[in-house]
Structure formats: C-alpha cells, structure tokens
Amino acid sequence: MSEITLTINGQEVVAQEGQTVLEVAKAAGVDIPTLCNLPELVPSGACRLCTVEIEERGRKRLVASCVYPAEQGLKVETETPQVASGRRLVLELLMARAPGVKQLTEYGIRYGVDPRKFDDTDADMCILCGICVRYCAEVKGLNAIGFVGRGVDREVMFIPEIAAKECADCSECFRLCPTGVLPSNYGINRVPHFDFPPNSFCKP
C-alpha cells in the first residue's frame, strides 16, 4: 500500500491507498455524520448522510464519503452549504420514513431540518440502511434476513425457515437497527411461502 496525500477542508492529510474518504476524515479528526456505516461491515452507501463535496479537475460534486476511495490530490470539503443542503434533504427524507428517531432528530437539529417537510403516510420506520442484512450475512454468516423487492416496494424480510432456527439464539441485529423497528418486524416481515394455487380472479 502506498501513501497518498489529500486535502480535507483545506488541510493536507496523509492516507493509505484503499482507505475511504470517511476513514481518512475520521482519522484526521473531522466529524462526518453517518448512519449506515459500521466499522465491522462492508460500507454500502445506503443512507447518503455522509455526503461530502469533492473537487475533481475543477468540478465539484457530492459523493458518499463512506464508499468513496481516497485518491491522491483529492480535495474534500465536509461542511459547505451544498453539503449541508444535501444532508438536510437526506435527513428530511429519512425522518419522513422514520419519525421520532433520536439519532436522526439530533442530526436534524444540527442541519436545521424541517421534520414535517415530507409527509409519508405509511412511514414504516425502516430506512433500508441494510445494517441488519449486512450484519447477518457478513458477521454472522447466517443470511436469515434479506432485501426483497425493488424501488418503493423494497423491504427487509426474514426467511422464516432460517429465522426459526437461528434468530432466537442471536438477534444481535436488533440492537443495531438505527430506528429500532427491526424487533417488531421479526415474525411479521417474512418471505412468504408462495407456492399457493395461482390466481383468484374468476372469468365472468
């Protein structure tokens, strides 16, 4: 691994190639809010709270620092007005999905969020951060919970056959869920056994 230098908030920092921008910033004592990033899990860039601004060839853009690789000469800004407004939007969306979560509320105050900006009538509390899914797969190797569906229909679901065997003795993911919804999903959000006789629609 070779050493590289990058600039964070105008300050030169030395990093190892292969580190993420978030890791480098943390080591340099720069605070970046995160939600879906746990040290023991492979970063997945799910929540976008760790958004920072980078400058490449004179062009600025917002990236998720937990998945963005530190590069030689990269310029990173962690608290510009653009970053703040990006994080504010992310927080407003997350808070619409999961109202009343302590960690989000705290960040919300910091970024002047209007917690009622978006009204999600079926706020189901799961922000799809994937911590439970990744923890079960990466740390426990059990794969009892997974993502199902796509887009607005995406959810986390337990595989009943595996959950019945493994979860009672583990349930370690419960305390990792940032919104606290996971324990109440257990037993309810299950992958259905879907080999039912097809179709209920009768020909008129």
């Binding site: 899914v133 079960c136 797969a137 794969n143 009892a144 919970i145 997974g146 993502f147 199902v148 595989i159």
Partner: peptide, 10 residues
C-alpha cells in the same frame, strides 16, 4: 444464500 437469490428474483 437464499436471501440473495430471493432478492434478485424479486
């Protein structure tokens, strides 16, 4: 893992 197969299938 079944979770991943199911994820792709849905």
């Amino acid at each position: 893992p079944y979770t991943q197969v199911y994820h792709v299938a849905t």
